[in-house]
Design a protein around this nucleic acid. Sequence first.
RNA 1: CGCGGGAUAGAGCAGUUGGUAGCUCGUCGGGCUCAUAACCCGAAGGUCGUGUGGUUCAAGUCCCACUCCCGCAACCA
Length: 684
Amino acid sequence: MEEKNKTYYITTPIYYPSGKWHLGHSYTTVCCDALARYKRMRGFDVFYLTGTDEHGQKIEKRAAEAGVTPKAFVDALVDNIKELWSLLDISYDKFIRTTDDYHVKAVQKIFKQLYDQGDIYKSRYKGKYCTPCESFWTESQLVDGKCPDCGREVSDAEEESYFFRLSKYQDRIKKLLTETDFLEPRSRVNEMVNNFIKDGLNDVAVSRTAFKWGIPVEFDPGHIVYVWIDALSNYITALGYGSDDTSLFDKYWPADLHMVGKEIVRFHTIIWPAILMALDLPLPKKVYGHGWLLLGGDKMSKSKGNVVDPFILEKRYGVDAIRYYILREIPFGSDGVYTNEAFIGRFNQDLCNDLGNLTRRTLAMNKQYFDGKLDASGEKGEFDDEFIAEINALDKKLDEDIDKLNLSRALEDIFAVIDKANKYIDNTRPWILSKSEETKGRLKAVLYNLTEAIRVCSTALMPFITRTPKLIFEGLGLKAPEVFDSVLKWGAVKKYETHETGILFPRLDEKKELIELDKIAAAAEKAEQKEVKKEDKKTDAAVKDGSAAKDNAADKAKEKTADAVNADADKQEEYVTADEFFRTKLVVGEVIACEKVEKADRLLKSTVKIGDEVRTIVSGIAKFYTPEEMVGKRVVVVKNLAPRKIRGIESRGMLLCAVSGEGENEQLCLVRPEKLMDGGSEVC
RNA sequence: CGCGGGAUAGAGCAGUUGGUAGCUCGUCGGGCUCAUAACCCGAAGGUCGUGUGGUUCAAGUCCCACUCCCGCAACCA
């Protein structure tokens, strides 16, 4: 707390705009936002950075599919995410786009410098190349020496590429990971060391020639700076590194915290520090690899995925509900699960019953017994010391929690005080004190203490939830504080004139809400399906409350090329002629033997008799059938499917299956003739 | 033996350097009436995955073996 004038630089990853923004993106960003707000209130000079990573082949391709330029494609998605951040009250100080001109220039400069000093060198990327797929594969990726994608022959090929000397920094990186707490949580360190460092670090390719959408290597046209240097360096270019004005960089670098999802820990803890070492810059103080926000646990509703659209949740329940859930429910460091039940449960229990109700009952009593006018002149009594001690302990607890980045614990600690306040009311029974003039003095102290508790809790909540504390402060007749400073303790405000507030959070009927959310999900899904078919260019009236039909970027991108795309779509929906269909030969076969394919979870190798012919077919059905139960079954086989090697076994044909769902919900069953038809019977 | 994570009350989770098993929700019983059918108190419910393993005066907590789940990787026309 003597850390005045200290800076705090915190970053989210820059997000890759490949599809729809969902609650997962919000997770990281909201966590960082809470930290940023917290540090600001602790008097730090905070710089909070977020942004988007907009280059690469995938975007080039998707834009082409949509018939727009890559820039137009990402522009739309960036608008969309900015809208989301504004909805969620994200207080970023800067939003960087890797397409920003200063970033492009700085990256080119960095690339050149690394090249000049020998950390980047030109070499050839050797591998197996599949011409039709336009893909490079390593030896180990090949399946039986052929392209794992299409099964065709591959040829030795080389591509010119620039490489970064990662190997040179291997020892320093290993030390950084194992001997410091650069990377947290600690459990991720093992993963990194075992998976990537143990066998030695290979130099990484940092340029590509296969696509154009990226930052050109200045001194070698045709080469594009690949993601490592392009994206990672955003953390310094955003501060002006490599530009004429480096004042921000000088002030804020090194970063105090890079918050990242566990899937990109590797890049941030191996490649990024190495780049910084090469540039001879200080390393960030910490990289925190958080878990994921998973969907699931829900048994009934299949379409809940769509409900976890933050736009929908915000519209229905408000920002604070989302922020609170995200920050409170995800266990520190590990994965958390989103369910509608838990969301509504948290909302009702914590926000409505505990916080909302406490505020309301207290302010109601203030009004009723003292017309809202309170001061510290009341009469002390039993329970006070303990209660006040609890309030005063919060300050330190919060600091410890946040120090460990344990946001959910911080909220727990705040709500522990709220809980204590509710108990305090029951213990002191103000409604009984109010019945006699003699106990008025005591009553005053009780209500004053409660009001102080509410003030301290609201203050403490400000970094986490952004709207409600302000409403509470209105009720308290105070202005919300800018900094914690000395206000996070009992007695900091001596006099009150409070007003009653409305209901802060209306209690939800859980059953009704769940049904409602399912309905919305279903509607959203319908809308999406339409979208996929690219048929609904007209304003979509299907979703009444509009939230699901929010104009996301995909819509916008499409609008620009509506006609062209529609023509395309019609083609896809065209019929096949009977002749075309009959080119596929479907026959009945009998499984006469079956076994599991080794080292493959999903694969069964079946020996199938079709008439007089016997052939081997490999299928991904091991999750649903055991080899034993397969034997003797009559199945439908695609007879003239091109043979293909799967895990070294030549599979000739395919077993027809009915499938639905994905992941946990996946269902699969064989399609089988209803009667015992002879093997070889045609299916038509 | 591909890499990693996990297994603690009905559910979701805490358990810090080993020292009488906790929290939230749910269930049941009671209390209160200031308040949003809220709030408060109490109870039931766990041999902390298995070995009846090892270290120790003492293990959910350390060591060993095993089982099962979940990610990633691989694989799925």
